[in-house]
Amino acid sequence: MLTLKQLNKSYVPGKPVLVDIDLAIEARGITAIIGASGTGKSTLIRCVNRLVDPTSGQILFDGVDLARLSGRALRHARRHIGMVFQEYNLVERLSVMENLLCGRLGFVSPWRAWRRSFPSDDVRQAHELLEVVGLAGFARQRADALSGGQRQRVGIARAVMQKPKLLLADEPTSSLDPKTSVEIMELLAGVGRERGIPVLVNMHDVDLAKRFADRVVGMAGGRIVFDGPPDGLDDAELTRIYGGQGWLQ
């Protein structure tokens, strides 16, 4: 499905953020990337859909190297990768419905997009998704009128609107309270399972990762230092990922 080969990224020459990342994601299940802040989790996820350009290496998605694409080809590849953001990144002054339909922009001609004339299938799908994420009846609300949890639900629905082959989630719960975080992760996991979409999510909360992930990838200093099932995360591994010991008690 997705294979990263020898991926390197440095924003400033000589200060690498990602070092020789090799990672393969299967076509199913939730993969959680954990690690302390600043270890490159976010950069890694953003490299996948090229919101960040890697310095070197390959991003093989469905057999195509995304690292080499640009322009229209890159856009077409992005259409199949949905993304959920830490701060939701909704267009605040658009309605919930318009935000959902943003997920279809890659498939609809700009002319129709300007006129807000989307295919009725898309609108129907959007209404269904609003029900799935528990926001039925919110279609006309403006995005800036929603709470954090509600916004992230819209963010997930927008990503799913793309009918993606892969869902990326960049710290989707870091701006939310613990209860809402669990609800959002349940939603994300549920959507992935029901629609058969693999989810690649990064988070710093170990408990959430253990609870929801099928596979955990631990990162430290821009490298992968752990890769395995959540059961394999014992104190020794966590110390390798996060360093120090005091926080474990």
Binding site: N49, L51, R72, L74, R75, H76, A77, R78, R79, H80, I81, G82, M83, F85, E87, N89, L90, V91, E92, R93, L94, E98, C102, G103, R104, L105, G106, V108, P110, A113, W114, G155, R158, Q162
Partner: peptide, 25 residues
């Protein structure tokens, strides 16, 4: 930029990014 980035991530063409990411703002 975040709102624009989100639209870009959906693979929208530039003019659609303008319509949904820039114009509303």
């Amino acid at each position: 930029d975040k709102q624009v980035e989100a639209i870009r991530a959906t693979g929208a063409p530039f003019t659609s990014v303008l319509a949904f990411g820039v114009v509303p703002q």
